[in-house]
């Protein structure tokens, strides 16, 4: 039933145009900094900007911290729910979906009220404490994606048998978690990690409202004040997102070829 008809091609062509044209336009615009000829000047200016380096580095570090905290939080929880508390699964799943219901701007509003400098747990008074708060905020934002990735990974392996085998060989809980379970859901964790990175690197709302020098607020600042650099930054951001998604595909494919069907 191969019907090569005109309709699908029209839909795909128009779709491609809509998605490709802004990328081409942005790229073209980013090359126009030098009058009369195309050049990579805008990129040179961006990469040489100390604030670009500082904010991009800061956001990368935050993304890394978010991934570490997220993995430490999600993997044991999802493992434990799979192993011992299957009845709790709907509750945990519901909680992990809440960040999709509650917009980030509402969450950070709550943080600012609950953890301000006069509160019981002042986290916005001190820079490091605010960084911590921002990291926890990002962990919350990434929770739906991280939890689903890890949970899917755990469902694909036999958690109970692995645990019992490890226990009968005398392994304690840390060994089971980090040397048995984690390597087995490596691909799922990495997918969640790259997705987290893509979400965190350009995040604007939380960083701006918590007043931290992250990449998202920097982008906004440049956008308000410069002409060509924003386009270069948009291309860079797109490339970073693309790299994250490419890595997710790569580790996924690697897992499929590395683990041949028994």
């Amino acid at each position: 039933m191969k019907r090569a008809r005109i309709g699908p091609w029209i839909a795909l062509t128009l779709g491609t145009l809509y998605f490709i044209v802004p990328l081409i336009a942005t790229f073209e615009f980013s090359l126009r900094m030098r009058r009369g000829e195309y050049s990579f000047d805008a990129y040179r200016v961006v990469f040489a900007d100390a604030r670009f380096q500082a904010t991009f580095g800061y956001s990368s570090l935050l993304a890394l911290a978010t991934i570490i905290v997220g993995v430490l939080l999600v993997v044991p929880t999802a493992y434990w729910v799979n192993l011992r508390l299957p009845k709790l699964r709907p509750v945990i799943e519901f909680i992990t979906l809440l960040p999709l219901v509650i917009p980030a701007i509402v969450l950070v509003f709550g943080y600012l009220r609950l953890y301000n400098s006069e509160s019981w747990l002042p986290m916005t008074g001190h820079e490091q404490a605010t960084d911590l708060l921002l990291t926890f905020g990002y962990v919350t934002l990434a929770l739906p994606y991280m939890y689903r990735a890890v949970d899917n990974g755990l469902r694909a392996i036999d958690v109970r048998t692995l645990t019992e085998a490890a226990q009968s060989l005398g392994a304690g809980w840390p060994t089971i978690l980090f040397r048995v379970i984690l390597p087995n859901v490596r691909v799922a964790v990495l997918s969640g990690a790259f997705l987290t990175f893509a979400i965190v690197i350009g995040e604007f709302t939380m960083a701006a409202l918590l007043n931290r020098p992250a990449f998202g607020p920097y982008l906004q600042l440049i956008g308000a004040n410069r002409a060509y650099e924003p386009s270069a930054l948009a291309i860079i951001a797109f490339a970073v997102t693309w790299a994250c998604m490419g890595l997710i595909n790569l580790v996924g494919r690697g897992a499929r070829t590395a683990a041949p069907a028994p």
């Binding site: 802004p22 336009a25 942005t26 604007f204 948009a234």
Partner: peptide, 15 residues
């Protein structure tokens, strides 16, 4: 679907 936020705004301003 993950290319949202400020960079997306830049892309459409350039378009």
């Amino acid at each position: 679907s993950n290319f949202a936020g400020v960079p997306l705004a830049f892309a459409f301003l350039a378009t």
